[in-house]
Every structure is written in C-alpha cells, then in structure tokens.
Amino acid sequence: MLNHYAINKEMERGSIYVDGAQDKLGENFINVTLGDSIKIYDSPSLDVRNPMPIEEYPIPESGFVIMPRVCYIGATFEFTKTYGFVPVLNEDDRLAVLGLKSHITAGFGDNGFEGTWTLEIEGSVPVRLFPHMFIGTLYYNPLIGEGDILYRGKYFGQIEPTESRLSEEYGNGRVRRKC
C-alpha cells in the first residue's frame, strides 16, 4: 500500500483524487468524513430483487442517534476518483471502539470508480453521529496488470448516499422518495 509521499505524487499525476486531501493525509491513508445526510430504509423487511422505499434525513449539528437493527445508508463528504489503484476504505479504531461499522463489506473499491463512497452504517449499540465526523481511512493498493477494465457500474458518479440498485439486475426499477 502507498505511503503518503506516493499518495501525494499520485494526486499530482491525477490518478488519485479526494476532495480536500491535503488536509487529510495520514501516514499511509487519507481521512474521510461523513456527509450531510443519511438514508433509512422505510420498510420492516427487504427483498434483494425489489427496490424498497427509503427516506433521507439531514444530520443536524446536534447529532443523529443511530439505533441497532436499522440499515442506514450514508456517504462520504469527499468525492473521490481512483485510477490505477484499488482503494480500500478502512474504518479505524476510533469507530470500532464505538461498535460502529461504516462499511458492511470489506471496503475494497474499484479501479476507475468516481464518486463519494457509500457507507452502510450500522451500530451494535445506539451511537450519536455528527455531520462531517471522521468516518474512515482510505488506503491505496497499486493495480498489478493491465487496468483496462474500469468501474462503470451502477453507482458510478454517485454523490448522495445511494441505496442498493441490486433490483436493477432483476429487471425492477428504482423507487425514489424524498422527505
């Protein structure tokens, strides 16, 4: 994985981009923060084949308490672009100590992805979140081999928290609902 000198150089080359990265650079990673809003599935159960209604809420300055047994979808505040590397979102001890997961999957990204990172936020216990709080660290693994296959999938270019689009694979559309 890249050290901060290498990350800096790659940002100069334009292969790695993260909003405001200069202030967020760590030894081997870039710190990312939580965006302004959070989405909650407005349904007692889910079905992978069908889109489920979802509500979006802004995160107020006073904080937003997340509860266990609920799926929250958030997004990083930072828009990112990665070419030639596999970015990995790691949670960091500062979140694990609260029993907080900001990423349900292992956090590997795709070469060629552009967008904010979707966060599948889950608490084992109730936790109060704040807007723009630290939410993870991005590491970069160099790509070995030809990097011609770029991510151009369902979530390319996403900015707001984006719920699952898996239903599109089953031929069902999306449900859009805003509060």
Binding site: Y41, L46, V48, C71, I73, H103, I104, T105, A106, G107, F108, T118, E120, E122, K154, Y155, T162, E163, S164, R165, L166, E169
Partner: peptide, 11 residues
C-alpha cells in the same frame, strides 16, 4: 469481500 449492493441492503 461482500458485494456493495448487498451491503446496502444491510446484508
């Protein structure tokens, strides 16, 4: 790793 599409469904 799990798939992002499933993770977004809380799986």
């Amino acid at each position: 790793s799990g798939r992002s599409s499933l993770g977004r469904n809380g799986l």
